[in-house]
């Protein structure tokens, strides 16, 4: 396999399974962090090229918060979790009792809370992945950026630009206090890791 879109339907099913379990883990982690019920919708897993991924997530100049973590060990690559303002507001609203209308109002404390939530979400998905595939994945320290979506998306695109033009995306839907909130997770093992993962995942599925 040379690219994410070379995955056959069985392999896509396996990734969807990772997405489901990961989103479930993420919802329960978020629920215990926020101390409120978090429900989840069925996550949608898709493999898209850069422009399609961009238009699925939003306007390139839209300001979002993104948490990035590097994966090492049996699998190397990047996980990038993108939070839109409504989800950020829900998080800092519950954790810190404040709201924001403009990103410039975010304090260091708010930003580190958002970073931590991103980190927890990413870890939930990585745990689902490593559990299902039976592989060891270690994660780097999470880093957060609050900036234009296009600039943030260019980071994984450039990182894998010599290998592929495609991104693998899991769109999760969380329902907190009856409000539906979308988040986007870009799960980007490098191509060697993707092949390795698929071998392990399909084996364990049989």
């Amino acid at each position: 396999m040379n690219s994410y879109d070379d995955m056959n339907s069985m392999e896509q099913d396996v990734i969807r399974e990772v997405g489901s379990i990961g989103t479930g883990n993420a919802a329960s982690a978020l629920s215990s962090l926020l101390g409120t019920q978090v429900r989840m919708g069925l996550p949608v897993v898709s493999v898209l090229d850069y422009n399609a991924a961009m238009s699925a997530i939003g306007n390139p100049e839209a300001i979002v918060a993104a948490v990035m973590v590097g994966m090492k060990g049996d699998v190397s690559g990047i996980m990038l979790f993108i939070l839109h303002p409504d989800l950020i507001n829900e998080i800092i609203g519950i954790l810190l009792g404040r709201n924001f209308e403009d990103y410039s109002q975010l304090t260091e404390m708010d930003i580190s809370a958002v970073n931590e939530v991103g980190n927890i979400m990413i870890s939930s998905y990585v745990n689902a992945l490593s559990g299902l595939a039976g592989v060891d994945i270690s994660l780097s320290v999470p880093e957060i950026a609050i900036n234009m979506l296009g600039g943030i998306m260019s980071v994984p695109m450039a990182e894998f630009g010599y290998q592929t033009d495609k991104l693998m995306m899991i769109r999760g839907k969380f329902i907190i206090r009856d409000v539906e909130l979308n988040s986007d997770l870009l799960m980007l093992p490098d191509i060697d890791s993707l092949n390795y993962l698929m071998k392990k995942l399909v084996q364990s599925n049989e």
């Binding site: 990035m68 590097g70 780097s140 320290v141 880093e143 957060i144 943030i152």
Partner: peptide, 10 residues
């Protein structure tokens, strides 16, 4: 450099 990642990443 959008993220302050350690090493070469990003």
């Amino acid at each position: 450099k959008m993220f302050e990642m350690q090493g070469n990443l990003g």
